[in-house]
Design a protein around this nucleic acid. Structure first.
Lengths: 224, 224
DNA sequence: CAGTGGTCTAGACCACTCC
DNA sequence: GAGTGGTCTAGACCACTGT
């Protein structure tokens, strides 16, 4: 007996073995369904999965072709920091370094699409007592009327649980540590940091902008 | 008329609006199918999509619950460098800086699971004539008997088109530029570089290890 | 216009897992 | 044991697009 995963694996095998070389059109779903002795929907599920991975290109009428330059899609899981630290077998802690109301600097304002005064919070995340990441957050308090005790729960986590979001973007880059980051993370200024920046927006208003500067040694990993 | 995407959007709306709060069990597929006036398979497709995104957790018998701490899954497209440069509207070029046979350094050998002699190739990728990324590659020539003229086609691209691969991993980190990278990219030593490292393996033998050190300003982006 | 993928349906059986 | 999601089927109609 065979399921759609078996069919996907067999198609994948034929692609890798170059039975179906890059650029060539493979048989139609109907033909494959007959060959494999299953329903067309099952073949469709298998081919759709491979197309989602970028290995096949599908177009109505034109058929299904093996991708010439497969665009690898690497998926990274971006968990809440506490989970990430605990997942490494370390003990999580966080410390709020400062908070105040302030008008965001231009780069933050433009990303959020709002130059209104925001709550600024600086949090150091620790793994086994050592600096793990410095979080720099600007928060629109209009959409978040009541706040938790920041010393008890990470704002990061509280927002995930309590605020409805609509859309967002993530950007990853490498940047030299500025004076503040270097001090908080216990590094020399200019040290290479992996920085992730996230913008989160609600239906109407922007919610928050977060910049996470990770201590050296941090890696994002993905299987392909 | 409604399709599975409409149902997915409506479920997403209810999650965001907290009609269905984090942690609660939502109605069964059968119930939802009746409510929406469609077949169960259509509801299944919609809920499966949201579960794949990490917003729902599904278990047989237990039902479908709204995730408490949704693990955001950010998907980044990792295209061939030429495509990436051209996608930014720039002109692509590459220059092979050096190549030789050598035993890989221990970190590379352990990643590939092979300490045999490999072909080492150093390639500078250019966008509009400016350094874009420095590629450092170790290639198992046993699985790649014939090589192209490296000055004509990027080894990166040639491999994608001509070598069957089975599995691989990608890791992303921030690292200070070493002397070689700084020279090739025209930077000061220690500059923060976004580094992507990829291991590719065939059915039996390792194929290649690639390290890409991207010039400052490089960002990976993803919608969430 | 015609061929191909995209999706929906109604029903069925199965696999897993909670009780 | 029983409830729920996971998947398959056979058929149908539709949407897109190359010719």
């Amino acid at each position: 007996m065979q399921g759609w995963e078996d069919i996907r694996d067999e198609v994948l095998r034929r692609i890798r073995a170059r039975d179906w070389a890059p650029g060539v059109t493979i048989p139609t779903e109907e033909d494959l369904a007959r060959d494999f002795g299953c329903a067309r929907a099952t073949v469709n599920r298998a081919l759709r999965d491979l197309a989602d991975q970028g290995l096949l290109e599908r177009r109505r009428k034109a058929g299904t072709r093996v991708a010439l330059l497969p665009v690898r899609r690497a998926t990274f899981e971006i968990p809440v920091i506490r989970r990430e630290v605990e997942g490494r077998g370390a003990t999580y802690a966080h410390r709020v370094l400062s908070w105040r109301r302030m008008v965001p600097p231009p780069p933050v304002a433009s990303r959020l699409g709002s130059a209104a005064e925001l709550l600024f919070v600086e949090t150091l995340h620790l793994a086994d007592g050592l600096p793990f990441a410095l979080e720099t957050r600007w928060l629109n308090t209009r959409v978040v009327p009541t706040l938790p005790d920041l010393t008890l729960v990470s704002l990061n986590e509280w927002l995930v649980r309590n605020v409805a979001y609509a859309t967002g973007e993530i950007a990853i880059s490498a940047e030299p540590a500025d004076a503040r980051e270097a001090e908080a993370l216990g590094l020399a200024a200019g040290a290479a940091l992996l920085v992730t920046e996230r913008v989160t927006r609600g239906d109407e208003a922007p919610i928050t902008f977060v910049r996470l500067a990770h201590a050296p040694g941090y890696r994002l990993r993905s299987e392909v």
